[in-house]
Simulated assay, not measured.
Amino acid sequence: MHTMWKGTISFGLVNIPVKMHAATENKDIQLRQLHKECQSPIKYERTCPVCERPVKNEEIVKAYEYAKNKFVVLDEEELEALKQEQADKAVEIVDFVQLAEVDPIYYEKSYFLSPNEGGAKAYGLLRKALKETEKIGIAKMMIRSKEQLAIIRVYQDTLVVETIHYPDEVRSVADVPNVPKEVEANSQELDTAKMLIEQLTTAFDPTKYKDEYRHALLDLIEQKKEQDQTATALDKPSPDAATNLMDALQASLERAKQDKPKPKQPQLSKQKEKKVKKKKTGT
């Protein structure tokens, strides 16, 4: 399992060197966008709307927009210094609480923790203490340039970090529109609803549930592959040497035609000029 973070978790005077691994994975099916005409993948370029040209990575800086089209530009060195300052801190458990006290709305992402070298005993100590007290730890940690609030708990004999949202990241329920304060329901309707809930109540078994849409989409993709309903992107045509030579010759010929001086009209003698004028005037 890939290690995505190494650090130390501490509570009191106990320090636990640990490694962190992603506990979940996104299995959404990623669909590419193709040009319908030639089946080639569509490319997206970062462009500047003012300069009207593509922008290279080294030309891009980060900034915070504090008002419409007003920015505070932040140097990479400044951001790196802030990140390093926080990353150097150990993950410290600041409080222990009951798991039921943390509403699931705060949950964000799960990570497995494994002990690093020399940390097995302290790891086992924390795991056993959390199990027997039925508590979870509240901690702060730095993940991918963001300071995260997290809980540390036991899951199937393994310590797990659950990153959770800060309170100001959870929107107020007062902002949700059209929520009724109280709904009148007669006793018969309420009893029927309770009975239905009881009939559908069972032990939670996550293996019962699956992503029906994802499986159906995978089946459709496999079916199209078996029926050879596939597309191959065309290679971008690159002109060969002969084509380049022909283009160069054609361009040279066109330029030569434009640059070639026009032939001068032969000058007539004075006697011939008089004869031409008499013919034109009829005299």
Rank of each mutant, 00 (worst) to 15 (best):
C48G: 12
Q271V: 14
V18Q: 00
T201I: 12
K121E: 01
E212F: 07
E25H: 11
L82A: 14
K36I: 07
L82F: 12
K62F: 04
V72L: 04
P17D: 03
K260D: 01
K83Y: 06
R127V: 03
K62Q: 07
K208L: 04
K121V: 06
A100H: 10
G7V: 01
L99K: 05
K36F: 03
F204W: 05
R53W: 05
A120G: 13
P237T: 04
K210N: 08
A122W: 02
D205L: 01
D219N: 15
A256D: 10
V179D: 01
G7T: 02
K274G: 14
K264F: 06
E162G: 07
I42K: 06
L234Q: 01
K262Y: 14
V55Q: 11
S145T: 13
K264A: 13
N69E: 10
Y166N: 07
T232P: 03
Y166I: 05
L113H: 01
L253V: 12
H35D: 08
V276I: 14
L249R: 11
S40E: 07
P266T: 09
V50P: 14
K83R: 13
A22R: 15
N57P: 09
G119L: 07
G12E: 01
L159A: 03
Q199Y: 03
Y64H: 11
K128A: 06
Y209K: 08
A120E: 15
K19V: 06
K131W: 01
A242W: 10
Q39V: 05
I152R: 01
A63Y: 04
G124R: 00
V94N: 00
Q98Y: 13
Y66V: 04
L220T: 14
V176H: 04
A23Y: 02
E108W: 10
Q271D: 13
K257Q: 11
A87W: 03
Y123H: 06
V91Q: 00
N26T: 08
L196Y: 08
A90N: 05
L82G: 15
L220Q: 11
K135E: 02
E80V: 02
A174N: 03
L99Y: 04
I9A: 02
A242R: 15
L218W: 02
I152K: 02
V161E: 03
L220E: 11
T207E: 00
L13D: 02
D168L: 12
L268N: 03
S187Y: 10
E85V: 15
K83L: 14
N186D: 04
Q265W: 05
P115T: 06
T202P: 01
T133L: 01
R153K: 10
A81L: 14
E59N: 05
K70I: 05
K83E: 07
H165L: 13
S172K: 09
S172T: 07
K70M: 06
Y166M: 05
K208R: 15
L220W: 15
L31Q: 12
V73D: 02
R214Y: 05
G118F: 07
A256I: 13
K225P: 03
S10I: 08
K264G: 10
G119C: 08
E182M: 09
